[in-house]
């Protein structure tokens, strides 16, 4: 017997996703933007797990594991980019300073 119903899980996921989205939009710190992205990914993963529990299907958890791996990869790449930027003499975490593509 699940403690949370599917609707509760969806609600939590929406809240998580909104939190992550707000973080991405509001924070200027690259590190926090990365963390917010992870929160958004986790929200999507939560929906998968909840849907898997709802329809009694294990593939939801498989997808969760894949998203977990994806999130780890994405964080690794993001951190590597930050480190590279730092090594190239641009010691700033402000995302808005990288706006060379402005119109």
């Amino acid at each position: 017997m699940p403690v949370f119903s599917f609707n509760d899980a969806l609600l939590v996921a929406v809240l998580l996703f909104a939190t992550g989205l707000t973080g991405v939009l509001v924070r200027r710190n690259l590190l926090f933007m990365l963390m917010s992205l992870d929160i958004m990914l986790n929200a999507a993963a939560l929906v998968f797990v909840a849907a898997g529990a709802r329809w009694h299907d294990a593939s939801g958890q498989v997808m969760f594991l894949m998203i977990l791996a994806l999130a780890a990869t994405e964080t690794a790449v993001g951190l590597a980019i930050i480190l590279r930027l730092h090594a190239r003499g641009r010691p700033s975490l402000d995302a808005d300073t990288g706006n060379l593509l402005r119109g």
Binding site: V24, L25, V26, M33, A95, D96, N99, R102, G103
Partner: peptide, 18 residues
């Protein structure tokens, strides 16, 4: 106005997408 939309800031682009 259009140039202001293209300000090169990732967060703004994300906001437009959303």
């Amino acid at each position: 106005l259009l140039a202001r939309m293209q300000n090169g800031r990732v967060r703004w682009y994300a906001a437009w997408i959303v």
